[in-house]
Amino acid sequence: MLEGKFETASTMKKVIEAIKDSVKLCNLNCSQNDGITVQAIDDSRVLLIALKLDPSCFQEFRCDKDLVLGLDLESLSKILRQGNPEDYLTLIAEDSPDSLLIVFEDSKKDRISEFSLKLMDIDSDVLTIDEMEHDCAITLPAAAFAKVARDMKTLSESLQILVTKDSVKFKADGSIGTGSVILRARTNLDDTKESILIDLNKPVNLTFGAKYLNDIVKATPLADTVTIKLTDKAPAMFEYKLQGGFLRYYLAPKFED
């Protein structure tokens, strides 16, 4: 049996909102040691989502037997919207489940809402992702990255990211004209989440689909900062850290034809 109780429903609500536009169906893997993990790939096979919610993400967590819960994320999102962000949220499943029980509790108002979501058999490829060497790692405020990704998408369907030891430059080249935004590395000791940190082994110049970057920044409400790891001619990794876990996106780059 699986029983995972979150202190607030907000984490799960934000996680599902962050991934449901990229992947429609996914398997939730549940185990006593790892908590809940997800690996899902979008239909175009360009964007991979990796979620990890350690048992420490939960107020209470037990999973007697490893379980795979196949979910339609649009349906899960409909149910998660029924609860308030500050409600307790508990996920419950039997050992051979055909449904997932989702319970919201508002202890102050003595309100309990229960929903049952039908599970599905989902056949999906699982990819092996080795810990990659990277040419540079950038940590910046998640909101600043989201603004650049959203703004630049209006100019072009591609966004070029150029990193040197003291700045990150985003460049868009579209039919109406061109644009660039430069963010300089800075350390803000009073408010470290406002810092822009660049750890550079080698300068990087990569191009990504603006559509996918806009899917990634849907995770912005989950964390103050995002860490981006870039390597020449390999997928980039975008990480939003959670309390006791992470939501990562791996995005395949675009290349000159």
Partner: peptide, 14 residues
């Protein structure tokens, strides 16, 4: 004129 690459050319299926 840039071409989108696929994750499958970088990561192996498990």
């Amino acid at each position: 004129p840039s071409k989108q690459s696929s994750l499958m050319s970088f990561f192996g299926k498990r």
